[in-house]
Amino acid sequence: MKKYINVLTGSILFKNIKEEQINEILKLGDFNIKEYDKNECIYHKEDTVKKFGILLSGKASIIKEDYWGNKNIVTNINKGDLFAEIFSILYEEPLNVSVVSTENSRILFINISNILNSNKSSEVINIFTKNILRIISKKTLILNKKIEYLSKRNLRDKILSFLSDQAQLNGNKSFYIPFDRQQMADFLATDRSALSRELSNIQKEGLIEYNKNHFILK
């Protein structure tokens, strides 16, 4: 674990928690580490899970898939990010999404119930619990934003709303988005060719400039 301690100390989950205290929490959480190949499924839709994951290396995505196999990226998972923490708390509730590695990845799994239900009462457990609540609250706000994008009447408004928020998030009119073109299309629940066409039209109107995942708002 020492190899990945910098990833853990940099995660919001372990904010204000010392290295030796992290080891204490991991032991309580009956942790284990697994490796996944690119495009391998980490968790399937309908799985029930007792352990949430922390991405130690690589990349992954949370995918929503409908009956006909149409995929929509709910969010991307980067190094240090958590996933399935809500479902690990409500461990009898099946997942309504899948988690897929988009690169060769290494995942740390932790049983959160073991920690939250531990008889061991300590300041570090209280800090850990507060950090979990912050993470869940932040993710709820992000999902609300996505609902806002998808509620727009047309693709143009979805794109402009998304790019406006990205500029504000980065504090600059010039920024990189965390998606390639297909991922952006999946995130906005549209077709890739339609997205590319609309981006081109918006650029011709002089509202934006872009090159791959780099955008400048005019």
Rank of each mutant, 00 (worst) to 15 (best):
K3D: 13
V7Y: 02
G10P: 00
I17Y: 03
K18A: 13
I25D: 01
L28V: 05
G29H: 07
N32Y: 14
N32G: 08
N32Q: 08
N39F: 03
K45D: 08
D47Y: 10
T48P: 02
V49G: 01
K50W: 06
K51P: 00
F52L: 09
F52E: 03
L55Y: 10
L55V: 07
G58K: 07
G58V: 13
A60R: 04
K64E: 12
E65W: 10
Y67T: 08
Y67L: 07
K71V: 04
N72Y: 04
L82I: 07
I86K: 14
P94Q: 14
L95E: 05
L95T: 01
N96I: 13
S101I: 03
T102P: 10
N104D: 15
N104V: 02
S105I: 11
S105T: 08
S105V: 04
R106M: 12
L108Q: 00
L108P: 01
S113H: 02
I115Q: 03
I115H: 02
L116M: 14
S121R: 14
F128W: 11
N131F: 10
K138V: 06
I142E: 15
I142G: 01
I142D: 14
K145Y: 06
K146N: 04
L150P: 06
L150F: 11
S151M: 09
R156W: 08
L160T: 03
S164T: 14
I177F: 02
D186L: 10
F187G: 00
D191P: 05
L195C: 08
L199Q: 08
N201V: 12
I202K: 06
K204M: 14
E205K: 14
L207D: 07
N211I: 12
N213L: 06
F215E: 08
